[in-house]
Simulated scan of single mutants.
Amino acid sequence: RLAVLLARGWDPETTDRHGSSALCWAAGAGELRACEALLAAGAIVDAPNRTGRTPLHWAARNGKEDACALLAARGADVHAATKDGVNAFHWAVFGAHVGAADWALRVGVDRHALNRWGCSAVHWAASAGDVAMCRWLLERGLDFSLRNQQGHCGLCKAAWNGHAGLVEWMLGAEVPNVGARQLLARDRSGISPAELARLNGFAGLAARLAAAE
């Protein structure tokens, strides 16, 4: 169907209401043949949507390593970030896609980059609640004590989102050189991780965190 549309003169840069092109959707789905056809028809490899997400970001978010590699080979800027400062590595981490995250590092995407609010890849992984991804980040030298502009570390993100398993992992001995007291410190508004969990409706997790303080 795509070939028919293109043959009839359909503009490959047509976007949805969010400004995302067909190439964004094709890359996010890992549809390599569709990506190739759109690029051959003149689709812009780095065309961002309204938030600055590029087709490469879509592919990374969904763990489509082959699509990432194809776009990079066709000239996509692997270092591009959204208007909020989110890069391909962040997107892959948020999606808990180790393969795509590893690809991003191999092509030189900054693992320590922060978005406009000071959030690192650790904050993204903690928000998603994936212990395996957090362990992978730890093995690659990411700082779990880093706090964003609100004073939130990864534990705060895990608490706010109710990720009890990740909270237990972070409070355990698996995070070297970062004590529980450091992770449990209050944010810039004076709110503790336990209070963040309680405010978002996770009473059991809030009690666990309060007991650890």
Rank of each mutant, 00 (worst) to 15 (best):
D16Y: 01
D16Q: 02
D16S: 02
R17C: 12
R17K: 11
H18L: 12
H18F: 10
G19N: 04
S20D: 11
S20N: 11
S20E: 14
S20W: 04
S20R: 13
S21Q: 02
S21R: 03
L23E: 11
L23Q: 05
C24V: 04
C24H: 15
C24P: 03
C24R: 05
C24F: 12
W25I: 08
W25G: 09
A26Y: 01
A26M: 03
A26T: 07
G28E: 06
G28S: 08
G28K: 01
G28R: 00
A29K: 15
A29S: 14
A29L: 13
A29E: 08
A29W: 08
G30N: 08
G30K: 10
G30Q: 07
E31W: 14
E31C: 13
L32I: 15
L32K: 10
A34W: 08
C35E: 10
C35R: 00
C35H: 00
E36R: 13
E36V: 10
E36T: 09
A37L: 15
A37F: 09
A37H: 07
A37R: 12
L38I: 05
L38S: 01
L38C: 03
L38M: 09
A41F: 05
G42N: 09
G42K: 03
G42T: 11
A43P: 08
A43G: 07
I44Q: 13
I44D: 05
V45W: 01
A47N: 06
P48V: 06
P48Y: 07
P48R: 05
N49V: 02
R50N: 13
T51N: 11
G52F: 07
G52L: 07
R53E: 14
R53N: 12
T54Q: 07
